[in-house]
């Protein structure tokens, strides 16, 4: 079987896997962003309790391995009466894990906003909420986006792990094809190429565009 025949035969399956990988990626990204915002703000909070809680969360999720968390959500939580589908478990574990890393990036970027901006907002008698929303967070974007872009590519790569809890993603499809045909080079090689194309030609250009957009917005805001 030539490589073209291989692709022609397995294209529908590979496409289905790619779509599922994209879905897991999307769900996990949205969850991770929310988690980073909540725990990043908690770490910045003046309340000692929320600082400690956020630190425990972040250290816990960064200190234990993602695969362990994934297995725990999928195999152990149902024993306690909480069960999710494989896809939901995958999104949950990925989102919670990467949210912990994202929280640290978000915290760092808020702290990197110049002190004078906080003082100016205070001088203008802005409420803490308004100050955060209108002054501080918009200025974190140019600082936060480059490390966040790295993390997003890491997240895409990490989605391959959900194949191990039987989500039919790209990796799962590759494993399936390998198990039935033993054409390992074609199966896993194609998966590698698709992951590479997604990271290099979809995700990275999109994130670069966001960076440019954020930089431009900042420039305009400062100008007006």
């Amino acid at each position: 079987m030539s490589y073209f025949e291989f692709i022609a035969t397995y294209l529908p399956k590979l496409l289905q896997g790619t779509v599922n990988t994209g879905l897991v990626m999307l769900g996990a990204t949205l969850l991770a962003i929310s988690v980073s915002l909540v725990f990043g703000l908690m770490r910045l909070s003046r309340s000692r309790v929320s600082q400690v809680l956020a630190t425990i969360y972040i250290e816990f999720f960064r200190g234990t391995s993602l695969l362990v968390q994934l297995y725990w959500v999928y195999y152990v939580l149902p024993l306690m009466g909480v069960s999710f589908t494989a896809m939901t478990s995958g999104i949950l574990a990925l989102g919670l894990n990467f949210g912990a890393y994202g929280a640290e990036i978000f915290r760092g970027s808020v702290q990197a906003v110049p002190r004078a901006q906080w003082e100016a907002a205070l001088a203008l008698n802005m409420s803490p909420m308004l100050r955060m929303r209108r002054i501080i967070i918009p200025q974190t974007f140019p600082i936060l986006l480059p490390p966040a872009a790295n993390l997003t590519v890491e997240l895409l790569k990490a989605t391959a792990l959900v194949a191990l809890i039987s989500v039919v993603d790209l990796m799962f499809v590759a494993k399936q094809i390998n198990a039935t045909t033993w054409m390992s080079a074609q199966a896993f090689g194609t998966a590698l190429l698709v992951y590479y194309a997604m990271a290099r030609f979809v995700l990275t250009p999109f994130l670069r565009w966001l960076e440019v957009l954020a930089a431009r917005k900042m420039g305009q805001d400062q100008g007006s």
Partner: peptide, 8 residues
Amino acid sequence: RSTPLLVQ
């Protein structure tokens, strides 16, 4: 760098 360790 841009492909998953698991697949590799």
